[in-house]
Design a protein around this nucleic acid. Structure first.
Lengths: 164, 164
DNA sequence: CTTGGAAAGTCAACAAGGCTGACGTAAATT
DNA sequence: AATTTACGTCAGCCTTGTTGACTTTCCAAG
């Protein structure tokens, strides 16, 4: 078995191991989105609404531009989602005081309620997985995910991590 | 700091930690799909084609039904993707010898070439992430992902793991 | 041998959620 | 005053998912 100078196994870099990792990501992501998807179906909202709600909750007062870059979608695509959330009274959009071109986004009471429902479900699954795997596994999980991100996304991720 | 009887920290189960995990999944999955997406754009194929190609390569001779259940899509949706792959000569579909209603799917030479290109790119990113994080982190990564899957998906995942 | 049901293929219609391009407005910047 | 930025919106397109209906093929049970 291949060993590094330090003595750790290199088996984790075989194509077979990498493929298992790829498939694990695929199946796990399905689980990751399953609960919120279930809640949203029948509410006239989809995954895109969930993502917008999540990040507005995460960074209250964020601008449309900022949200665009976090979500990685065009303003037209984001606007369609935001429009329905604002019209339905889940999100409040207000002109910036310093720069009146910007719109600052906040969740309303109603928006906070849905956010809570969605994130409770998603956290419950995550908590169960974390508990089952243990703290060391969780640390490794986060390390690998961070290393998998594009640099720009990692920047966004870390900015959120600190900010919150 | 909260400690279990065994002495491990429970800090990894706070809502804040769980939320970081959720966001890590979101940003990492973007990275995970970024390279294949780039390759496929301009080739007239999308992520759905990639997924079909991956699992046909993984389980040569698999049936349409089987693929449907692995991918979690309807036969109509799968058929559209499969149709183009077959017409373009990337996938060969042949009647079953035991059960002639079934279609057994294989990649052609051309299909294998595209599969190679896609999986090389995806594995390269995974390899870099694994290398950066180290073997222990990788073990934890896999543990958490497995725990996150729905039982049915975990069954599929493990079946593939053994079979391959 | 006939028939019921499973596996697959296909047609049609629709929805969500991406995209581009074009255009408009208000506000900030130069 | 001219340009750039941030946002909103209209129109149209694509991919990929969905349902529903219908057909063909074929295995297996009666």
């Amino acid at each position: 078995m291949a060993e590094t100078p330090g003595g750790e196994s290199l088996l984790f870099l075989t194509d077979e191991q990498l493929r298992k990792g790829i498939e694990a990501m695929f199946f796990a992501y399905r689980g990751f989105t399953a609960d919120p998807d279930r809640i949203l179906e029948g509410k006239d909202y989809g995954r895109a609404h969930h993502r917008a709600i999540h990040f507005i909750h995460r960074s209250p007062g964020t601008t449309v531009s900022n949200l665009m870059s976090i979500l990685g979608v065009t303003k037209q695509s984001l606007n369609r989602v935001l429009r329905t959330l604002i019209d339905d009274g889940l999100v409040r959009s207000e002109k910036g005081k310093l720069d009146a071109r910007e719109r600052h986004l906040h969740l309303t009471e109603k928006g906070l309620m849905l956010e809570r429902e969605l994130s409770d479900a998603q956290r419950a699954r995550m908590r169960a997985a974390y508990r089952a795997a243990g703290p060391q596994a969780v640390a490794g999980f986060r390390q690998v995910l961070e290393a998998m991100m594009d640099p720009e996304m990692r920047r966004q991720y870390n900015r959120l991590k600190e900010g919150g």
